[in-house]
Design a protein around this nucleic acid. Structure first.
Lengths: 223, 223
DNA sequence: TTGCAATTCAAACAGTTGTATGAAACTATC
DNA sequence: GATAGTTTCATACAACTGTTTGAATTGCAA
């Protein structure tokens, strides 16, 4: 078999362009130009544009989920099946935040592509996306084990809010910087992670006896 | 001057279609079919597709902002220039949540259109969107007055997280319903508002002496 | 080297998009 | 009721989209 140079060049170029400019205004001609391959190569190697996008998404989805689950599993094993809620939340939002924020040059194309995918929702991705629910269910399970006294509804809402803060902060990072006139430092990723985890933890533990909401100072020093 | 029947039919049809299906896959031909007008009417009345979208967005943006500011102003006047943080947050996220969630038949096309606009970010809207920062600044100001002991950075982060929870919940309402197997009731809008406001309030008040985070029970009964 | 399959390539295709045109229909004023 | 200005209409246009085609080229096995 020949080297799949062309194939992987297309994948890399497509991911980069989609991450930078979104799905809606990146054409096959943009991709093949960036990859320095012929236009027909996309259909030859992937069948169609949609199948290219789908392959990209599936690959990255598996990788991201594996990374998140690795962190989660490590935490649960260390805690004998019950990880602290902060650690679970950190495993949930940390990888994505770290991949999408921080200094320009060390942002991950893969993470930014995944955020685009979660935002723009093109047909080929929407079709696959249902699987991610199974993935989130694993986190919901871990959170329930960590907070057995909490109702399921509250846990789901906490999970929802944690993802909300992480994704929205990534999506609107530019606006937040402008609004705060640079006072909110989006380059300090670990501070952002700490803030999101802190608020989500409060959301999940407030109103209970053992609600030990991490102080703001703690969140800020956690870097 | 003649009645602007055609003009407003186009605006209404466009808003409805954009709200339902997003900007990317609604064509001018879809719009004129829905509005029962001729294809050329759009360019005759608005100049171009982009100007149609821009007019739609500007109109709705002004209306939404006016409603939010009305609630905010009322609260501040009643409190002598200092509204409780919960009330400010409610004025910020309440109108949007109420317009986008709740029973199918009473959802507002306008609100759903605005959410689309905040999600998909097409060029004509992106150009205008900077004004919204000025609008958010007014809320940031009110929040600072309400929590004078809090640092600016914390206030901006709180504002960011409040919007995050509201918008993300709207965007991913379907997924949350599926994930929770219907346990999270997205039709109970006032409960959703209460949860978002409650968590955002905690985020803004935790770690301080007067931090009286509303109990979960309070949030749930606030409807 | 010869032969064959896999890959690349330029070119063309069919479909859709937003926009422009010029004639027709309407509306109001005198 | 003729006229001038506005609005509607069918139609055409040019640009762009993803995809297909068939010939050229390549790489490898016999």
């Amino acid at each position: 078999m020949a080297s799949d140079h062309t194939r992987s060049a297309i994948l890399a170029a497509a991911e980069r362009l989609y991450a930078d400019r979104g799905f809606s205004d990146v054409t096959l001609r943009d991709i093949v130009a960036e990859a320095n391959v012929n236009l027909a190569a996309v259909n030859y190697h992937f069948g169609s544009k949609d199948e290219l996008i789908a392959e990209l998404f599936v690959t990255r989805s598996i990788a991201t989920n594996r990374e998140r689950l690795r962190e989660l599993k490590a935490a649960e094993e260390q805690g004998g099946g019950r990880a602290p809620i902060e650690v679970i939340l950190r495993a949930l939002v940390g990888p994505t935040l770290r991949g999408c924020l921080g200094p320009e040059n060390q942002r991950s194309t893969a993470a930014r592509f995944m955020i685009r995918a979660s935002i723009e929702s093109v047909p080929p991705i929407r079709r696959i996306k249902n699987r991610e629910i199974d993935h989130l269910r694993k986190f919901a399970g871990a959170m329930r084990r960590s907070l057995p006294e909490r109702s399921d509804v509250d846990v789901y809402w906490g999970l929802n809010f944690a993802l909300a803060m992480a994704h929205h902060t990534i999506r609107e990072s530019e606006r937040l910087t402008k609004l705060s006139e640079g006072k909110c430092d989006l380059d300090d990723v670990e501070d952002v992670v700490a803030r999101v985890v802190s608020v989500a933890t409060m959301a999940l533990t407030a109103g209970k006896a053992e609600a030990k909401a991490p102080s703001r100072a703690l969140a800020r020093d956690a870097r």
